[in-house]
Structures are given as C-alpha cells and as structure tokens.
C-alpha cells in the first residue's frame, strides 16, 4: 500500500481539493452578500417609503429578462460540464459558448438598465440619492463584477476547447460551474429584494 500523499483530493472524504477550496470561497462570498442583505432588511424596514419610491423607478422587466438569462446560463453550464465529463467536446464547446453568451447578455441588459439611471442623474457614490440607490448600485454592481469575473476563466476554457487536445480537466470546469451557479443564486435573491418586495410596485411606474 502506498503511503504517498495524494494531492488531488482530500484523503478521507475524497473531495477534490479544488472543489473544497471553491466551496470554502463560496461560503465567504455568502457571508459577503449576507452583509448587504442584512443591512438592506434593516434599512428597508426603517425607510419603507424611501425604498418604495426608489424601487418604483426600477425597470423590473429588464431584471426579469436577466433572471431568465442567468437561469438559462446555469443550465447550459451544467450541460457543458456533463458533456465534457462524457468527452463530447463539440457539445461542451456549444454549451460553454452559450453560457458565456448568457453572461454577455446579462451585462448588456445591465448596461441598458444602468444607462437609464445615469440619464436620470443617478450615479453610484452620489450623496444626493437615497439609501435605496446605495443598495441598488452596491448589490447589482458587485453582482455584475462577479459575472465578469466568472466569464474570464470561462472564455479561457472555451478557447482551450478548440485546441487539438481540447480542454482535458472536467473537474476544473465543475469547480468553475459552482461559482457560476452561485452567481445565479445571488441574483435569485437580489431580483425580488430590490425589484419586487418593495411597496408601490403595484402602482409603480413600470
């Protein structure tokens, strides 16, 4: 029996180290966003009217489109991993490409949404807008940064998939997939919190 240390996975649970590290990172990310949500809950309850007025100016239809895009890209990411594990390189490239397109689509819709806010004179870091918009820019801005951060390694893996050897590490793509699903998870909470669970929406502008 070999006593050599296997560095590819944790010796007792057999969980790959990459996956373990990603889950630890996601736990810290969960706490990171928890701070936003904790503050959001308290300030929403104490500034009910301010949050209602702010939310009435948000375009929930664009946010809904983005929700569908992210859910779709979560599915295509899961399918990309499945196909790479089964050595179907063509299908892997197709679904990974669709996932990246989903990320781009999300950012384009976000750009449209932000543009209308900027046109109304609402910018991040301004002192004359309400506390609602501080949360809006903080939460959606950090979320968009996470989308961009996920797309960079995805693009690398996607283009690597076109080389002669293809992309040979399904476990790394699975680890990246965990991150991408997490980005989807955060949006699942951000969407109703900012756009729907706020007063005046029934009589709101959009």
């Amino acid at each position: 029996m070999s006593l050599a240390l296997n560095l590819s996975h944790e010796p007792i649970t057999k969980i790959p180290h990459g996956k373990l590290a990603m889950w630890a990172f996601l736990a810290s990310e969960l706490m990171f966003f928890s701070g936003f949500f904790g503050g959001f809950i308290v300030l929403r309850n104490t500034n009910y009217d301010v949050f209602g007025a702010g939310s009435a100016h948000l375009n929930w239809t664009l946010a809904l489109i983005n929700t569908f895009i992210l859910i779709g890209s979560s599915l295509t990411m899961a399918l990309a991993i499945h196909n790479l594990e089964h050595k179907k390189d063509g299908a892997f490239r197709l679904f990974m490409g669709l996932t990246i397109l989903g990320g781009f689509g999300f950012l384009i819709v976000k750009y449209i949404e932000y543009s209308s806010k900027f046109a109304d004179g609402l910018f991040p870091g301004q002192e004359n807008h309400t506390v609602f918009y501080s949360f809006y820019f903080l939460m959606t801005g950090f979320h968009a940064l996470h989308v961009i951060a996920g797309m960079i390694p995805m693009a690398y893996i996607f283009f690597k998939g076109f080389t002669k050897a293809g992309y040979p590490y399904p476990s790394k793509v699975e680890t990246l997939g965990l991150y991408w699903h997490f980005v989807d998870l955060m949006w699942i909470f951000i969407f109703p919190a900012l756009y729907l669970m706020i007063p005046y929406h029934v009589a709101g502008a959009h």
């Binding site: 649970t13 969980i15 996956k19 630890a24 736990a27 706490m31 928890s34 949500f37 699942i188």
Partner: peptide, 26 residues
C-alpha cells in the same frame, strides 16, 4: 440549484456545511 446543479445532493454531505454555517450566521 444547490442540490441539483451544484451537486450537493450527490456529493459528500460535509460540503453542505459550507452552506449551512454561513446561512445560520446570516
């Protein structure tokens, strides 16, 4: 999403604590 897409249902149960503990703290 966590149990099916992220495979928590199929992976080692220990990984679930990476979700349970932050959620509890939140």
């Amino acid at each position: 999403v966590m149990y099916i897409f992220m495979h928590l249902k199929f992976d080692h149960p220990m990984l679930r604590f990476f979700v349970y503990i932050p959620v509890f703290l939140f």
